[in-house]
Design a protein around this nucleic acid. Structure first.
Lengths: 154, 154
DNA sequence: GAGAATAGCTCACTGAGTGAGGTAAGTTGT
DNA sequence: ACAACTTACCTCACTCAGTGAGCTATTCTC
């Protein structure tokens, strides 16, 4: 985005620069997802779906097709297709939801977890390594900042 | 990703949590792009292309179709199609590259900048506001962290 | 229990992205 | 200075991911 006509303000300029840097990181993460997709023969959407399902599992949230559709910002039909593809590839299992007979419970298979770990493991380790370099205070600063940003993005 | 079998390590756990938070931010930024795309009748890829072109302009880099393809992680053919769509919508102009007769120079139109600003402006302002809350030292901590992460992602 | 709402699905279709292959401009070797 | 190679981008034909319309089954509301 062009900087507009605002008068020079070093505080603002520094903040803008930081936001751009954050976007840059987001972009590269997305590119890494695309690379993983190409490497495994999956589609970018499928990989995004898998990571969201794993996130749900980690957070203890029950992942349903509807929930997944919302997470991906896609229609329910497209999400149905994604689930079918992942199911056919053996990456996801559809279990019956015990709370709602209309809905399904999605569970990621061990093979998918292993696959993801093999590819993203090294990357993740590198990122963890970088993050561990921060002392506790700085880590808290970054963490709080990211949390606030995530909230601001709804 | 599941946490694996490593023994409990609070440092590592905190770092991992932070990395997940970073992914969360990246995801939501991507969703915002999708929302913008739907609102404007563009496609997510087209929006991503526009932002990259604006980034190039900001950085003073000459944006060519080939460069854009690389930035989007797509084939040159798909990028040709993106450029055609953006050109037809009046968002991008193809100018002749003066250094290389085979290549083209892509320039984003004022209307596209205005369009992006109208949608992303409020969001960007909110993020800048959040970032300005940090004092200079903390901003530097976050900025350095993000730079290191971006580099680690190639 | 009837009517409304919700979760997810199938079907038919559109069009974004790919692979194969072409053209034109630039680069290199002799 | 010309042929051979490389690079940058394009067109064409095709595939299949994602959408809109509309269906069924289950749950909620009164």
């Amino acid at each position: 985005m062009r900087e507009g006509v605002k008068p020079a303000d070093p505080e603002r300029a520094a903040a803008l620069e930081l936001v751009h840097r954050l976007r840059e990181v987001a972009l590269r993460l997305e590119l890494a997802v695309g690379e993983f997709a190409r490497a495994t023969g999956l589609h970018a959407t499928d990989v995004r779906a898998l990571t969201r399902l794993l996130d749900a599992e980690r957070a203890g949230v029950e992942a349903t097709p509807g929930w997944l559709a919302q997470q991906l910002g896609m229609t329910s039909q497209a999400t149905t297709a994604v689930i079918h593809r992942l199911e056919a590839a053996g990456h996801v299992e559809r279990l019956r939801s015990r709370s709602d007979g209309r809905s399904a419970r999605l569970q990621v298979s061990e093979t998918a977890v292993d696959l993801g770990w093999r590819f993203f493991g090294p990357l993740l380790e590198r990122l963890i390594g970088i993050t561990e370099q921060l002392d506790q205070r700085d880590r808290s600063v970054v963490s709080d900042y990211l949390t606030t940003v995530a909230d601001a993005l709804e």
